[in-house]
């Protein structure tokens, strides 16, 4: 079943690696083995789709490659540098959009961006200029002075995305960036990300929506039960099918539900 299409050196020397390399990543929560010896290689400049069914270990993996969650075992290299031994230095290279974590939502959208920039000790003028441009690009200009607590789910996602990109990192790790986002904003974000990747930036994004991944990403890894099933370019992974069919085939879904014969309009 496991078919790693990329040829991976068995003991990688950091120099030979892309922007992100993961080997043997493992995390257990009590009885749940969320991530089980996961390997991953993300080349520089790629738009990398990280897909998998609910509970596959996507968020756990992304937390461990961004320094939010310490792995039980395994290693993570960013730019060839061991992340967990050089956390403080490497944090400046990574931008994170976590899923399901809160924001300081009593700050306004504008303040949240300034706050993020100041926490990263960026130049004040640079922060102000970039925050302005990001607010315009993401269509948040009109709501910049409102508390984030009053934002809709999509607006919250967008302001968090702006905060992740503010310091122009080498690697953007985005957990479900398109969830709850309207099509217009989604297209704007896709263009921003494509430009960023064309300029040498690297994006990893997780998603449930295969159509989005197929349109946005050039490389894909399919995760299931805490391991990577397939990893490679979009065409390699899709193997001649559309991504969604291939995905369902890989994770063993597709069983047609039986029963539920009562589920039709009735008089009751």
């Amino acid at each position: 079943m496991t078919a790693t299409l990329d040829t991976v050196p068995s003991s990688p020397g950091p120099g030979a690696l892309g922007v992100l390399t993961v080997r043997g990543l493992t995390k257990t929560f009590g009885p749940v083995r969320a991530v089980r010896g996961l390997d991953l290689d993300v080349p520089r400049g790629s738009m990398f789709g990280f897909v998998g069914p609910n509970g596959a270990g996507k968020t756990t993996t992304l937390s461990m490659v961004t320094g939010l969650l310490r792995p039980d075992a395994g290693q993570v290299w960013v730019n060839g540098v061991d992340l967990w031994s050089n956390l403080t230095a490497m944090r400046a290279r990574i931008g994170v959009l976590p899923d399901d974590l809160r924001l300081f939502d009593r700050l306004t959208g504008q303040e949240l961006l300034t706050y993020t920039g100041m926490l990263r000790r960026m130049d004040k003028a640079v922060v102000a200029r970039r925050a302005d441009e990001l607010l315009d690009a993401l269509g948040l200009r009109g709501d910049a002075g409102k508390p984030v607590a009053d934002y809709s789910a999509g607006m919250t996602k967008k302001i968090a995305l702006a905060a992740a990109a503010l310091h122009a990192p080498d690697l953007l790790v985005l957990d479900e960036p398109f969830e709850a986002i309207d099509p217009v904003s989604a297209r704007a974000i896709q263009e921003i990300l494509a430009q960023y990747a064309a300029d040498g930036g690297t994006v990893i994004l997780s998603s449930h929506v295969m159509d989005t991944v197929q349109r946005v990403c050039d490389r894909v890894a399919v995760v299931h039960r805490g391991q990577v099933l397939v990893c490679g370019t979009l065409d390699e992974v899709a193997a001649g099918q559309d991504l969604e069919s291939r995905f369902i085939e890989l994770v063993g879904g597709g069983a047609v539900p039986v029963g539920l014969s009562w589920l039709r309009p009735s008089s009751l």
């Binding site: 700050l107 306004t108 504008q110 303040e111 300034t114 706050y115 100041m118 926490l119 000790r121 960026m122 130049d123 004040k124 102000a128 910049a144 002075g145 409102k146 508390p147």
Partner: peptide, 20 residues
């Protein structure tokens, strides 16, 4: 709309070490 209180506070110094 509120003015940016974070920017106003941080504006008091030029030393990046104190920004956070």
């Amino acid at each position: 709309a509120r003015p940016d209180a974070v920017a106003q506070t941080v504006a008091r110094t030029g030393r990046a070490a104190w920004f956070p």
